[in-house]
């Protein structure tokens, strides 16, 4: 239990997707002009991460890892290592999960669907999603629960980051920014400063 809580807090603050690894920067920069749209995209990202990370974990554990096929063909599996296929399998899972989530949300929560709108399909090429799956594989998380918690935490961290920068950009619009820095330049610098603030969480260990 404590391990899970530790992982959860670390994935939100210490190993924040945006500030520590620069993942999902493209949509982070493109969709952070107003807080409302940022919120919509953030929630969609949490949603997809919460589903794809555990699914990719199961895929890695039972199909791709060295010797993972043992449940299927017994002893012979010890030598089979399919992990070189993981990029293509993960991206396929993500693309199809995004499609599936889109259809489910459209059917059962039309209000949420019209709010998320175009953001859902965009998420398939958001680096934060593939990044979370690859980090999950690299760190060798040991259980389904850990993978779920890691996905949820990374998503919440990303949401905090994008809402923060969207709020800052709404204010910046009324400030006298030097002309060459307007728009994207000042956003980079503001993100950098937010990142330095987030470094203070570095020592946290539960």
């Amino acid at each position: 239990m404590q391990d899970l809580l530790n992982l959860f807090v670390r994935s939100i603050f210490v190993e924040n997707m945006v500030f520590a690894f620069f993942l999902g920067m493209c949509s982070y920069l493109a969709v952070s002009k107003t807080v409302n749209t940022a919120m919509g995209l953030g929630i969609a990202v949490i949603f997809v991460l919460l589903i794809t990370v555990p699914v990719d974990w199961a895929l890695n554990e039972y199909v791709l890892k060295k010797g993972a096929l043992e449940w299927l063909i017994g002893e012979k599996a010890a030598e089979i290592d399919l992990s070189f296929l993981s990029f293509i399998m993960f991206i396929a899972v993500i693309a199809s999960m995004v499609q599936l989530v889109e259809m489910i949300v459209e059917k059962f929560a039309p209000a949420l669907y019209s709010q998320l709108g175009i953001f859902l399909p965009l998420i398939a090429v958001n680096c934060a999603i593939l990044g979370a799956s690859l980090f999950m594989q690299e760190r060798e998380l040991t259980s389904f629960g850990e993978a779920t918690v890691y996905g949820l935490g990374s998503g919440i961290g990303w949401l905090i980051a994008i809402i923060g920068i969207a709020a800052i950009r709404e204010k910046i619009r009324y400030s006298a920014v030097p002309a060459p820095l307007r728009g994207i330049g000042i956003t980079f610098i503001a993100t950098g400063l937010m990142g330095i603030a987030f470094m203070t969480f570095m020592g946290i260990k539960l």
Partner: peptide
């Protein structure tokens, strides 16, 4: 060396 400086 810290990540945020890359952005700046």
């Amino acid at each position: 060396i810290l990540p945020p400086m890359a952005l700046i």
